[in-house]
Design a protein around this nucleic acid. Structure first.
Length: 424
RNA sequence: GGAGGGAUGGCUGAGCGGUUGAAAGCGCUGGUUUCGAAAACCAGUUGGGGAGAAAUCUUCACGCGAGUUCGAAUCUCGCUCCCUCCGCCA
């Protein structure tokens, strides 16, 4: 949510933001609603003041055993007025809120303006491309041959877009997230969290998934709960409606969770194998920081995500997203894409975003500074990293001509020393 | 799922329907005192909205939402969460 004062000051800038982010929110009625609400509020406050003063008068009269019936009669009218005004104000507030909740965050000044991913800037490429003396196979072939990934049976059990990991495949998955959690907790100072996988509507609204993306979420209607699309939701909301102490900042959390996405509207696009699935695992990184530090914190967030890929020996590149590809809530975002020789593509495994105070306003997350003043924190999050595509990259990059797959060295301690995945 | 109890400021905990934004204690901050510290004493110590250049004024909030009333932390109803017991269960 944007600060209403920013909108009052420069609504044209906000309108431009809506366009640049490919949103459709209509802001035409916003300022009018806002000023109408304000004038009603003033009127209502005035009447309430009258009511408070008169109430005391009545109480004094009564304690002196004097007649107060005239004053009470007069007050009745005042009270009715207040009630009507309160109803009107509530209606205006609801209408305003429904618009405010649909206004995207304003991109940072150094974010390139662009319509779609073709305007993203590649800011660096890291790691060596491997040479193969053979044509590298895609992971769905390798997974099937080695009997470590089974898409057919997953589809039988649930449906398309789900994965069954088996044997060394399941073990490799487990090795990966344990490796990542250990790295972030032991080397990077993050506190490990294991949050609920189901969250309520307020949490989903707080981080910005709702109201916009309700169709993309799995929902339990009986309880109005949602399966988390990312650990960002429960972890960011850990501090919702709290005033943090300045000594708590920065706070770094990391969480391993499954993530659930309906992916409505993306059917048929990159769906082969586990390129795009409805349920996947991810190790998430979430930061709560002081506003003035948040862009530095974004850089260090990016670097710890990159560290994962570096240690895994994978080739990757980093993109700075343009306005059109930036998510609703983000002010700035870097994507990390890892190279997969079998699929022959770069695959997104992480998005590292600074939300500034956008989520903090929605979730009401604040801190008290050294002078005792209260401000919204800045929140950031990034994947550190998402598992399926990292798994794809490992399997495809580390494949050998004989069909076996080397286990990256850093994962071997997590694989009981296993060096090569062979058909069992 | 059934029965009962509860939800008040950073914490503990009072609170006849009418100067209670809220007693008291603890904690915290500042001051006095001290060579310094402790103790003692004094003062301060919730957040949001609005008006104002500011001082300041005003309004809202006692889990959440409705209602009764001239007036609600206090009464009524619904909901949520927490605790105890019973049932079911990984």
């Amino acid at each position: 949510m944007l600060d209403i004062n920013i909108i009052r000051d420069d609504i044209e800038k906000v309108k431009q933001t809506v366009i640049n982010k490919n949103e459709k929110t209509n802001l035409d009625s916003l300022l009018e609603l806002d000023s109408k609400r304000k004038s009603l509020l003033i009127e209502c406050d005035d009447l309430r003041n009258t009511r408070n003063i008169t109430s005391k008068k009545i109480s004094e009269l009564k304690s002196k055993k004097e007649d107060a019936s005239d004053v009470i009669k007069e007050m009745k009218g005042v009270s009715d007025n207040i009630k009507q005004l309160e109803v009107d104000i509530k209606a205006l507030t609801d209408e305003l809120d429904s618009i405010l909740l649909k206004i995207p965050n304003i991109p940072a000044s150094d974010v390139p303006v662009g319509k779609d991913e073709t305007s993203n800037e590649i800011i660096k490429e890291c790691g060596e491309k491997r040479d193969y003396s053979f044509t590298p196979l895609p992971h769905w072939d390798i997974g099937k041959t080695l009997d470590i990934l089974d898409f057919e049976r997953a589809a039988k059990i649930t449906g398309a877009g789900f994965t069954l990991y088996k044997g060394a495949g399941a073990r490799l998955e487990r090795a990966l997230y344990n490796f990542m959690l250990d790295l972030h907790t032991q080397e990077h100072g993050y506190t490990e969290i294991f949050p609920p996988y189901l969250v309520n509507r307020a949490s989903m609204t707080g981080t910005g998934q709702l109201p916009k993306l309700e169709e993309d979420m799995y929902r339990i209607p009986e309880d109005d709960l949602f399966l988390i699309p990312t650990a960002e939701v429960p972890v960011t909301n850990i501090h919702s409606n709290e005033i943090m102490s300045v000594t708590d900042l920065p706070t770094y959390y990391t969480a391993f969770t499954a993530c659930f996405r309906r992916e409505a509207g993306s059917h048929g696009k990159d769906t082969r194998g586990m390129l795009r699935v409805h349920q996947f695992n991810k190790v998430e990184l979430v930061k709560f920081v002081r506003p003035e530090t948040s862009y530095d914190e974004l850089e260090s967030l990016l670097s710890v995500s990159e560290k994962v890929l570096q240690l895994l020996g994978l080739q990757y590149r980093v993109l700075k997203l343009c306005t059109g590809d930036l998510s609703f809530a983000a002010a700035k975002c870097y994507d990390i894409e890892v190279w997969s020789p079998g699929v022959d593509k770069f695959l997104e495994v992480s998005s590292c975003s600074n939300f500034e105070d956008f989520q903090a306003r929605r979730s009401n997350i604040r801190f008290r500074d050294d002078e005792g003043k209260v401000h919204h924190v800045h929140t950031l999050n990034g994947s550190g990293v998402a598992l399926p595509r990292t798994m794809i990259a490992i399997i495809e990059n580390y494949q050998r001509e004989d069909g076996t797959v080397d286990v990256p060295e850093v994962l071997r301690p997590y694989m009981n020393g296993l060096e090569v995945i062979k058909k069992s």
